[in-house]
Amino acid sequence: MGSVRTNRYSIVSSEEDGMKLATMAVANGFGNGKSKVHTRQQCRSRFVKKDGHCNVQFINVGEKGQRYLADIFTTCVDIRWRWMLVIFCLAFVLSWLFFGCVFWLIALLHGDLDTDYKDDDDKSKVSKACVSEVNSFTAAFLFSIETQTTIGYGFRCVTDECPIAVFMVVFQSIVGCIIDAFIIGAVMAKMAKPKKRNETLVFSHNAVIAMRDGKLCLMWRVGNLRKSHLVEAHVRAQLLKSRITSEGEYIPLDQIDINVGFDSGIDRIFLVSPITIVHEIDEDSPLYDLSKQDIDNADFEIVVILEGMVEATAMTTQCRSSYLANEILWGHRYEPVLFEEKHYYKVDYSRFHKTYEVPNTPLCSARDLAEKKYILSNANSFCYENEVALTSKEEEEDSENGVPESTSTDSPPGIDLHNQASVPLEPRPLRRESEIGSRR
């Protein structure tokens, strides 16, 4: 089982795998120059863009038009607004034209077009017409509009002379109601789609790998820009990579689940303020055997998904993003964004995407760390350097704002901070800030 798991979770494809794949392509008759073999020097295209759209195009789909027309309502909801407006206008105009032609044909076959009612006051002739005051196609078209929109100006009306005319008036009224219901329903469904809710759900630009509770963890940050909550919010993550099976089958995008606390339930989050999602790199993680150097040379993509129900409509929305291997910062942490004021908490989104480097973060893999092949620094050293990194950030910001350097908390000259780390230190809580992250 261990060997199978290692093969499945191998992220960085070796040169031997690339040569094996190329040999397979030639042997199977696919070596026509169009096949692409992804190596370390040639990274694959992003499968999920940063804005959440999937970078996929469908080609050679059989009976595409028929399949889309069979699900016309979903098609109308998914198309762009400009095409929705075109369909909206065409549906009414074509129905008016169709029934206008029908009423014109009825008048033509009944002989109503030969009668001039402007110079004739004989009401008996008017009563013999199928539709009064309809003696041309324009008049028939206007009567069709008046019937379907129930305008009723009063000059044109159907008589009991022709039952077919009466039937067409009733039929057009029913068709008009159906068109109204369909168009209004599609427009309302399109307006109520929770897709735009994703514009106020954000992911951090970069993911980070750092120590948390004595273990290497992959972390990324999510935030909600609205005050309205995302009900039943939960997160998922998958690692996408290519691999070759033991039988020699090439899988271009193998999807591997990344555990973010599904078993323990901590994948469900209360997204009021930005939260750091934590994936513990343990023996079940696809990143277990990867060191910093392996991450730098790897070719994979981590897709992160945030799902929840919109509070206003109770409709489920899904926000997506992805991180390539070069977008994962090893040995970094996110800057705090949640600050405790006197009577409330304040979230500073200008710090949302910012990170700071944490010294002495192990550069080895989580496996080597678990097997004690890498000796961690003293816990006080880690905490102290973590505090120094934050303090230096604040000093830089104070210097930019014009604060005198004498007010900063610099260490005395001639003292090495790293050498001082081995000395037991008193706890130094942050002056006014605390970061709330997901705790395992």
Rank of each mutant, 00 (worst) to 15 (best):
102 V>S: 14
432 R>K: 06
404 P>W: 12
387 E>T: 00
131 V>P: 03
59 I>W: 11
280 E>S: 09
337 V>K: 02
348 D>C: 02
382 F>Y: 05
274 P>A: 09
250 Y>R: 14
163 P>H: 11
293 Q>T: 12
341 E>L: 04
178 I>F: 12
208 V>C: 12
82 R>N: 03
429 P>I: 13
13 S>Y: 07
417 L>T: 08
77 V>Y: 11
247 E>K: 06
410 D>T: 08
352 F>P: 00
232 E>D: 05
329 L>P: 00
13 S>E: 12
146 E>F: 02
189 A>I: 15
421 A>D: 05
39 T>H: 08
161 E>K: 03
81 W>E: 03
80 R>D: 15
394 E>A: 09
215 K>L: 11
381 S>D: 07
43 C>I: 13
287 L>E: 00
298 A>R: 03
180 D>Q: 09
435 E>T: 06
367 R>A: 04
289 D>S: 12
318 Q>F: 12
432 R>L: 11
124 S>V: 14
380 N>Q: 05
126 V>H: 05
177 C>A: 15
411 S>W: 05
350 S>P: 02
54 C>N: 08
378 N>P: 13
124 S>G: 14
64 K>F: 08
34 K>M: 14
181 A>N: 08
414 G>P: 11
403 V>H: 13
78 D>H: 13
294 D>F: 00
176 G>E: 03
161 E>A: 10
69 L>W: 12
272 V>C: 08
167 F>E: 01
175 V>N: 01
361 T>H: 13
187 V>W: 09
196 K>V: 14
396 E>K: 08
171 F>Q: 02
152 G>A: 03
401 N>A: 12
337 V>D: 03
4 V>D: 14
298 A>G: 08
78 D>F: 08
190 K>H: 11
271 L>A: 04
415 I>T: 13
373 K>C: 13
90 L>A: 04
363 L>K: 04
16 E>M: 05
227 K>F: 10
43 C>A: 13
286 P>I: 01
318 Q>I: 10
113 L>K: 02
164 I>C: 05
117 Y>I: 02
112 D>V: 00
24 M>I: 12
110 H>W: 01
44 R>K: 09
175 V>D: 02
258 I>R: 01
356 Y>P: 00
112 D>M: 03
155 F>G: 14
396 E>M: 07
361 T>G: 02
377 S>D: 13
88 F>M: 13
252 P>N: 15
348 D>E: 07
353 H>D: 09
181 A>P: 03
248 G>D: 14
157 C>M: 13
127 S>A: 15
363 L>M: 12
133 E>W: 02
29 G>C: 04
257 D>Q: 09
92 F>I: 15
356 Y>F: 14
377 S>P: 15
161 E>S: 05
112 D>L: 01
369 L>S: 03
57 Q>C: 08
224 N>F: 05
183 I>V: 09
210 A>F: 04
364 C>W: 07
61 V>N: 15
120 D>K: 00
29 G>R: 07
12 V>K: 11
397 E>V: 11
403 V>Y: 08
132 S>H: 04
373 K>N: 10
354 K>I: 08
102 V>I: 05
417 L>F: 08
56 V>P: 02
232 E>S: 14
68 Y>K: 11
361 T>M: 15
346 K>R: 08
139 A>T: 12
217 C>W: 04
237 A>I: 01
294 D>K: 03
298 A>H: 07
158 V>E: 02
305 I>G: 06
380 N>K: 04
317 T>W: 11
245 T>W: 06
389 A>Q: 15
122 D>S: 02
227 K>V: 11
290 L>H: 08
324 L>F: 05
104 W>N: 03
180 D>A: 07
42 Q>F: 06
350 S>W: 04
292 K>G: 04
259 N>F: 05
366 A>F: 00
19 M>A: 09
323 Y>L: 11
367 R>E: 01
96 W>R: 00
179 I>G: 07
89 C>L: 13
322 S>E: 01
410 D>G: 09
46 R>K: 01
11 I>R: 03
125 K>P: 11
86 V>E: 03
51 D>M: 06
269 I>E: 11
249 E>F: 06
313 T>R: 09
243 R>D: 03
330 W>R: 00
39 T>R: 08
270 F>N: 07
11 I>P: 09
187 V>M: 04
222 V>F: 06
184 I>V: 12
71 D>F: 05
271 L>M: 12
237 A>M: 02
208 V>A: 04
165 A>C: 02
85 L>T: 05
399 S>M: 13
342 K>Y: 06
291 S>M: 02
119 D>E: 01
373 K>W: 03
320 R>G: 09
401 N>Y: 06
64 K>P: 05
322 S>L: 00
418 H>K: 12
427 P>R: 03
377 S>W: 06
77 V>D: 11
370 A>I: 09
122 D>W: 01
221 R>N: 00
144 S>Y: 01
147 T>H: 06
42 Q>Y: 08
352 F>C: 00
82 R>G: 09
275 I>H: 10
162 C>A: 01
275 I>Q: 09
436 I>M: 06
99 F>P: 00
378 N>G: 12
311 E>K: 08
436 I>E: 14
232 E>P: 13
354 K>V: 12
31 G>H: 10
108 L>Y: 09
329 L>Q: 05
65 G>E: 04
435 E>G: 05
342 K>I: 08
49 K>E: 04
131 V>K: 02
279 H>C: 00
303 V>L: 11
49 K>L: 04
98 F>P: 02
429 P>T: 05
288 Y>R: 03
220 W>H: 02
271 L>D: 05
421 A>C: 11
359 P>H: 05
251 I>S: 14
164 I>M: 07
362 P>H: 00
337 V>T: 11
175 V>L: 14
350 S>R: 13
413 P>S: 15
274 P>L: 03
269 I>C: 07
312 A>L: 09
315 M>S: 08
